[in-house]
Design a protein around this nucleic acid. Structure first.
Length: 465
RNA sequence: GGACAGGUGGCCGAGUGGCCGAAGGCGCUGGUUUGCUAAACCGGUAUACGGGUAAAAACCCGUAUCGCGGGUUCGAAUCCCGCCCUGUCCGCCA
């Protein structure tokens, strides 16, 4: 959520931000609702004040009269009743007036809030302008020595690479047929070494963050209330992406939602809290199962382990002070962790600065990390894929957008309260990362070499055969 | 799932219709006293929104908030209704 005061003072900043993100928001209506809401509030509060004052002034007297009325008779009773009616006249009128204002507010306030919730976080000033993914800018790339994605796999390794689909089939790492039998399209079963590799990358990444990067590992709920989804900014726009558990239809409890990322649980931790500045930054990581309906993606990446409904991910978040330089510093730090992990796994990758049109609602800055996947992309003359970059990570800076929605604040050294700033970044997502892992490390004999850091989690095996 | 008991500030806890944004205590914090520390004493100590108000700070005024929502009332932490949540015991259970 954006700051309503900042919006009031400088609506153009948000108009421009929304335009750059390609979001159509009715800002005129928002301004109008804001104005209307404030005038109702002002008037209503004035009436309430008078009501409170009157109540204090004449209230006790009315109480007395009512007491006397119980025993009064005849003329005395009539006089008391008249006096009471006179005393009640003003409060009654006020009450009716306040009730009217309350009714008006009850229609204006939710409309105002709903619309406000849809205004996107404006992109940071240095984010390149663009319409969509095609306008993202490559920042840099890395490859292990002896491999260059610009050249063919075959020219460097001496054989044509299999796709991950072929590798998991030949090495019996996944069983798509049975996954689909049990749960439908985009479901899978990891089998044998497939499961071990999957667990290995997750465990390696979580340990790395905890041991080498000072992030506190957490286990957080993946089944959460709607407030968590709204607070983290995945709702209202992402409703169709989340699995919905309609507990309310069973007569009790709230509805619940399956989270699409551990970010929801990690950021929800401190919702509605006021941390002290000394508690910041909070650096958390989690390994969690992620659930995505992938609505609107039908026909895209239908085969294999790329786009699936359920996967596991190690996610990192930082909650820090409201400071641009600090936010940028953590952004770099988090991406550095990812680069260290990818390099240790020998996976070529590149960093893409996302343009304004590709940022999404809640980010002011986002960098995607893509790994080279030799089995993806267009087919060459031999009918085999030429290889392609595939997104495996994404690193976002959210300014105060998320913490404002979550009501996550901190008290600074002067006792002033601020909304904290948040960042999040994939550490590793599997099985998607197994695609580059298997495809890059495949050997001519059909086996796959296991990168050294994963071997300890694979029973010491050096190869998948 | 069944039966009870509860939900009040950072924490504990009092409060059965107006004097209650809320006693008392703890914690935190400023000060006084004091070789140092401890103790004692005095003071301060919620948040949001709106307004004064103009760029900000400070301050002032108002309103709201005692789990959430609604109701009764001139007036609700307090009475009524619905919901949510927590605890305990029983049942079930990885």
């Amino acid at each position: 959520m954006i700051d309503p005061k900042a919006f009031r003072e400088n609506p153009d900043r948000f108009r421009q931000g929304a335009a750059e993100k390609g979001a159509a928001i009715d800002f005129d209506r928002l301004l109008e609702l804001d104005e209307r809401r404030r005038s109702i509030l002002t008037e209503m509060e004035a009436k309430r004040a008078e009501q409170n004052r009157l109540s204090k002034e004449v209230g006790p007297k009315m109480g007395q009269i009512k007491g006397k009325l119980k025993t009064a008779q005849g003329a005395e009773k009539a006089a008391l009743e008249a006096e009471l009616a006179e005393l009640e006249r003003k409060p009654h009128a006020l009450k009716a007036h306040v009730a009217t204002m309350e009714q008006e507010l009850a229609t204006v306030e939710p409309a105002w809030r709903d619309l406000l919730m849809t205004v996107p976080q404006p992109p940071a000033g240095d984010v390149p302008k663009g319409r969509g993914a095609e306008d993202n800018k490559e920042l840099r790339r890395w490859s292990p020595s002896g491999f260059d994605p610009a050249k063919t796999f075959e020219s460097q390794r001496g054989f044509k690479p299999k796709t991950h689909l072929e590798l998991v089939r030949d090495l019996k790492l996944a069983d798509f047929e049975r996954g689909v039998k049990m749960a439908g399209t985009r479901h899978y079963v990891l089998t044998g070494m497939g499961m071990r590799l999957h667990q290995a990358v997750i465990r390696y990444a979580l340990d790395f963050m905890a041991d080498k990067r000072g992030f506190t590992p957490m286990s957080v709920p993946v089944i959460v209330r709607e407030e968590c989804m709204l607070g983290t900014g995945f709702f209202p726009f992402g409703r169709e992406q989340a699995y919905h558990i309609e507990e309310s239809k069973r007569g009790s409890g709230h509805d619940l939602y399956l989270t699409g990322t551990g970010e929801v649980g990690l950021m929800g931790l401190h919702a509605d809290e006021i941390l002290s500045e000394g508690d910041l930054p909070r650096k958390y990581c989690t390994a969690s199962t992620c659930f995505r309906r992938e609505a609107g993606a039908s026909g895209k990446d239908t085969a294999g382990l790329y786009r699936i409904h359920q996967f596991d991910k190690v996610e990192q978040v930082v909650v820090c002070k409201a400071d641009d330089a600090e936010s940028r510093g953590w952004h770099k730090h988090m991406m550095e962790s990812v680069e260290m992990i990818l390099q240790s796994l020998g996976l070529p990758y590149r960093l893409l600065q996302c343009c304004t049109g590709d940022l999404g609602m809640k980010n002011e800055d986002m960098i995607d990390i893509e790994c080279w996947m030799p089995g993806r992309g267009e087919n060459g003359a031999d009918g085999r894929p030429l290889g392609e970059w595939g997104e495996t990570h994404s690193a976002s800076r959210l300014n105060d957008y998320q913490c404002r929605r979550l009501n996550l604040r901190y008290r600074d050294a002067d006792g002033k309260i601020h909304f904290a700033w948040a960042l999040n970044n994939t550490v590793i997502a599997s099985p998607r990362v197994l695609i580059p892992l298997l495809e890059m490390h495949q050997q001519q004999d059909g086996s796959v070499a296991i990168p050294e850091p994963l071997r300890v989690h694979c029973g010491g095996a050096t190869h998948v055969r």
